[in-house]
């Protein structure tokens, strides 16, 4: 990441720590997002919106690494997919509470992230990307062979169950509000991480790793913690998705999933707070509404990816923010 070639970020006003560390522009964007979350399920199909929300959480988790630490992971499907399997297993076989099952999925992602991250952070740049890809492929083949995943069939007919012992999730609207709450919790957690003393060190590592080391920071520890956090939230997104659809399959762990999250984040805007959310809305909408055209989805996605990289390198939110000279 050559930070020097980019235009410097607009100087944050000294006292721009409004509510929860949001700048004013971000606070406005957050309110708009909240309004959309509340209003849209009455207009659009809630299942579609839930896919957007969990795609957004997954992309936000991924963005924590690429956007704030400069680490490009090509293996995030492993955390998402394994989270989906274990969440499904916890719900269907162990009959856990839905909230707890989703936490099991998150913990699975986090633990796997600890193991894979511990290996991957020893290298940076393209080597880091390749190691994460290779490790995720190993996880994929494990899932193909392991009996508990159900192989090609996956884990099916997962009951949605009850959240916190109180809220049955059978209706789509109940599931939607639960999903929205999970998304918001994850989104705010990431925002807090970025605007914490820890997040400050992450930015320092992204900007100039040797300098951070020379100040005495054990940068590997920071990278690993960020990696585990990202993997944990990816697992949460995966597990929640399997609860929504009642199914967990190889689709979650396959490398396409890792590619999708890169695309989503790039389209929305790397290193922006709201970019991954907008990116998820765009890519999910494309998948949904172009589905009738079959393989044209992939071709269209590819074309958009190329256009984005060539013309809008900052992504949708990044471009808007740069035009308006705001930090979003």
């Amino acid at each position: 990441m050559s930070a020097t070639t980019e235009t410097p970020a607009p100087a944050a006003a000294p006292a721009a720590h409004g509510i929860f560390g949001f700048t004013r522009a971000q606070a406005v964007a957050f309110v708009v997002m909240l309004a959309a979350i509340v209003i849209l399920p009455h207009i659009l199909y809630p299942i579609f919106l839930m896919r957007v929300l969990m795609g957004a959480l997954f992309a936000c988790a991924f963005n924590l690494l690429i956007g704030y630490l400069g680490l490009l992971s090509f293996g995030h499907a492993a955390f998402y997919g394994m989270g989906a399997y274990l969440g499904a297993w916890a719900l269907k076989v162990w009959h856990l509470d839905a909230a707890l099952a989703i936490l099991v999925g998150g913990a699975t992602g986090g633990l796997l992230g600890l193991a894979l991250g511990w290996l991957a952070i020893r290298r940076s740049g393209i080597y880091f990307a390749m190691i994460t890809l290779a490790l995720a492929q190993m996880v994929y083949f494990f899932c193909v062979e392991a009996p508990f995943t159900g192989g090609e069939d996956g884990i099916q007919q997962i009951p949605r169950g009850v959240a916190f012992g109180l809220f049955p999730l059978h209706s789509d609207m109940a599931m939607y509000w639960f999903t929205a709450a999970i998304f918001l919790a994850g989104f705010l957690l990431i925002h807090r991480v970025i605007h914490s003393p820890f997040g400050q060190v992450l930015k320092a590592i992204r900007e100039n790793e040797p300098r951070a080391i020379s100040l005495g920071y054990r940068v590997q520890d920071y990278k690993l913690i960020a990696f585990v956090l990202s993997a944990f939230l990816s697992g949460i997104a995966g597990a929640t998705t399997s609860v929504i659809f009642g199914i967990a399959t190889l689709d979650g762990v396959v490398s396409d999933r890792s590619g999708d999250v890169v695309l989503t984040t790039l389209v929305g805007g790397l290193g922006t707070v709201f970019g991954p959310v907008v990116g998820a809305a765009v890519t999910t909408a494309m998948e949904n509404y172009l589905a009738q055209f079959g393989s044209w989805v992939t071709i269209t996605q590819g074309a958009i990816f190329v256009v984005c990289v060539l013309a809008f390198r900052r992504g949708i939110v990044g471009e808007v923010a740069a035009r308006l000279k705001l930090s979003l």
């Binding site: 914490s196 003393p197 820890f198 100040l215 520890d221």
Partner: peptide, 21 residues
């Protein structure tokens, strides 16, 4: 501040607001 923060601890706390800095 990044240097001060390192010398005086408080750098793994990802759940705190950066206002503590």
């Amino acid at each position: 501040r990044l240097a001060l923060q390192r010398a005086r601890g408080r750098s793994f706390d990802f759940w705190r607001s950066e206002r503590v800095l």
